[in-house]
Design a protein around this nucleic acid. Structure first.
Lengths: 168, 168
DNA sequence: CGAAAATAGATGTTGACACAAGTATTGTTG
DNA sequence: CAACAATACTTGTGTCAACATCTATTTTCG
């Protein structure tokens, strides 16, 4: 039985025979599939600039905190994807001279991470192609659809976010 | 200036100061964030059963093709996330006796991958907790929201899918 | 038919990520 | 105030995944 009223694009993409067990399953698989397709394109762009998505996000967060820098653990909390091991991401960015570390004098456990001029240049170089790629991948949705999508995704995260924000 | 009319949940989650550059950017970051949160929960479930999401998907696809099995490259095409290296995923599943290989006699380049009884048992063991997790994570959306989400994600993939399906 | 191209998959290698354990510093509390 | 706990990272280690390369087989076409 199940929903025969709509032909599933996803079903054809992943060769699923028969219906999905539930709308929930189809929504989840759609999310995975869609994110994977988009992410792949961005990874390629980042690779051209010797970065990965994780590295880029660390860089972006450091940039967002400007002159005073940002503690390593704050970066971990603010990363889009929840990745441990920010230390080594910062390691690599420091080696590439895109970031620099500075130990906090008040609390010597804390290390502040600051973006360098080179890091800012790298981000600037990525801005235009990044926006262009975003527009190429999502522009056809239109503003109304985009906002609806944002709203729905927010609803998905709603019950979990609070817990996530609390425990980290 | 930008959209001050809606407080951005995502903005608070990832500590983004100021507005997003565009609805496109916010939608993309929302996608990444949401998928990451959900995926993490599934990875944990799979880990309890000595699987990963990739391994599970390979297993699921093999199961979908039943008795006659399925060529390795077909699995690659049908995976939700585009992963190369299906060979080694199958390697591991074969070692765990969840799958078995069988060389095709008609075209000796092709290897058919078939699920074993053990593999079916593993899938069956995952079915209920999988559905429960799905429901826990997405159930609060309701049918209307889920279908709208599916529709929007389909729209996102629309212009790219054809190319993807063609080139693979 | 036979050489070249295409297909299916396996393998080698490098690097990244994940979990766990370790170190240094600060906070807490009996 | 001394010992224990908590915090903020760092480092060690094993596994996994990605990219390119390689082998075996089949198809194409002059």
């Amino acid at each position: 039985m199940g929903s025969t009223k709509r032909t599933s694009l996803l079903g054809r993409e992943i060769g699923k025979s028969g219906d999905f067990a539930s709308a929930e399953e189809e929504a989840y698989l759609s999310l995975l599939r869609t994110t994977s397709l988009l992410e792949r394109q961005f990874e390629q762009l980042f690779r051209e600039h010797d970065l990965s998505e994780s590295l880029y996000n660390v860089l972006r967060i450091a940039a967002g905190h400007g002159e005073k820098g940002v503690p390593t653990l704050t970066i971990a909390r603010q990363l889009i994807a929840l990745v441990p091991d920010v230390t080594r991401l910062v390691d690599r960015l420091e080696k590439a001279k895109l970031l620099q570390r500075e130990r906090c004098e008040k609390d010597r456990r804390v290390v502040y991470v600051k973006i360098t001029a080179g890091g800012q240049k790298k981000l600037e170089a990525l801005r235009k192609p990044g926006e262009a790629l975003l527009h190429k991948l999502l522009g056809h949705l239109g503003k109304a659809n985009l906002e609806e999508l944002i709203r729905l995704l927010e609803t998905v995260r709603m019950p979990h976010v609070s817990a996530e924000l609390k425990t980290r």
